[in-house]
């Protein structure tokens, strides 16, 4: 479904050039859920943004659904296959567009017909009732906004969802609801996920395999079973697992 090979991403020009991602390679199979974990600045979100076509300063090979992509150009078919959900549900919805407008505009852009019925279907899919259709973002809670953002991503009927810290701005109780929703949607629609998170427990819950990143490089690709058993081969992964287990008084 997705192949990334020798991906380098950089920002700025020498002497201020920052190499955000260096030589990253991984593959994600159809129907798989793949996690990218690491500290802030490790380049995990940058990889997602390069795949989605939000960054043009990259080199290497990105192949989505047997189609190689170049620079920032993405064709219509790409956006029908790949959609992204962002971290901050407060920033990713237009404050003056109602839920109905957000979803129907996306559907129109995707060239869909029967928009009225589809908007209703999308809202049902993400567990928002009829009452939410004509609300504005400020009338929604954080969890409800993230549901709208997920509905918008689903509007194109994609097969690959890029999830950039989809629950880190939410309370744990709401996080549980959204993670359950994403588990169900993946099963119903046969979706493939690439999920970025700094929370190992969330990735452990959602993903089958994960890549651990540090300083722009992938230091280890491992199975979630190995993560659960703490069977990491790299020292950095071990320290990350230990640190995320919680605070031990010095």
């Amino acid at each position: 479904m997705l192949t990334v090979e020798g991906l380098d991403v950089w920002f700025g020009y020498p002497p201020d050039r920052v190499d955000a991602v260096q030589d990253a390679s991984f593959t994600v199979a159809q129907g798989e859920s793949f996690g990218l974990v690491g500290e802030s600045g490790s380049g995990k979100s940058t990889i997602l943004r390069a795949i989605a076509g939000l960054i043009d300063t990259w080199s290497g090979r990105i192949v989505v659904d047997d189609q190689q992509v170049e620079g920032r150009r993405r064709d219509r078919a790409f956006h029908k296959t790949v959609q992204m959900v962002f971290q901050d549900p407060y920033a990713s919805l237009h404050p003056r567009h109602s839920v109905d407008r957000v979803l129907s505009e996306t559907l129109k852009l995707q060239g869909m017909d029967d928009i009225d019925r589809r908007v209703q279907r999308l809202l049902d899919d993400v567990g928002l009732g009829r009452g939410f259709r004509f609300r504005y973002p400020h009338q929604l809670s954080g969890g409800q906004r993230q549901r709208v953002a997920i509905a918008r991503a689903l509007a194109a009927e994609p097969r690959l969802l890029l999830l950039d810290e989809p629950t880190s701005a939410l309370d744990v109780s709401v996080q549980a609801e959204i993670l359950n929703l994403m588990t169900d949607l993946r099963a119903e629609h046969g979706l493939t996920y690439v999920m970025v998170s700094h929370d190992l427990a969330v990735v452990g819950h959602m993903c089958d395999r994960l890549a651990v990143m540090q300083g722009g490089r992938i230091v280890e690709v491992m199975k979630v079973e190995d993560l659960r058993q703490g069977a990491a081969s790299e020292a950095y992964t071990k320290s990350l697992i230990e640190a995320s287990a919680g605070y031990v008084r010095a």
Binding site: S173, L179, A201
Partner: peptide, 14 residues
């Protein structure tokens, strides 16, 4: 409602 590495579940209790 917290996901746990040592206790995998399909659905988190809400």
């Amino acid at each position: 409602s917290l996901p746990r590495l040592d206790q995998p579940v399909k659905h988190l209790p809400v």
